[in-house]
Amino acid sequence: MKQLSIFVENKVGSLAEVTRILKEAGINLRAVASFDSPSYGILRVIVDDPEHARELLLSEKHAVKMTDVLAVELVDKPGALDGALQRLAEAGISINYVYSFVLRKEAEPLMVLHVSDMEQGRRVLQEAGLRVVDKLDS
């Protein structure tokens, strides 16, 4: 699945500026995570139309990068995430970051993962019987 990483300065309103641009274009945010240091932050988002969102943000002079992530469907019960993470650890794959989808109507939760070896990570998860989602159904 495609994710957008937006490099933002750590100052008042910088995140709101990004969400404003997406809202005005009617682009829905499916998952969002932000990591910050005292001076800058990386906002990671999954949106309905990443290509369009990327162009919009670039046209407003934002620093955006599109990257691949794994979106894994989990059953909504204790230990589900643990199961997935254990498999990856056993396969020697390290996790760079993980975050979750905001809300999914009548569907299982989705976790977003970025791992050291994306191809192998996908295989390990699929072999464990987990569904890796590549496209959002709109």
């Binding site: 990483s5 990386i42 620093a63 955006v64 990068k65 760079n96 970051y97």
Partner: peptide, 15 residues
Amino acid sequence: ELADDSLFDSYAGLE
């Protein structure tokens, strides 16, 4: 300024 987008997604890289 960062030269390009290669580090946008890497917190460790930026640090």
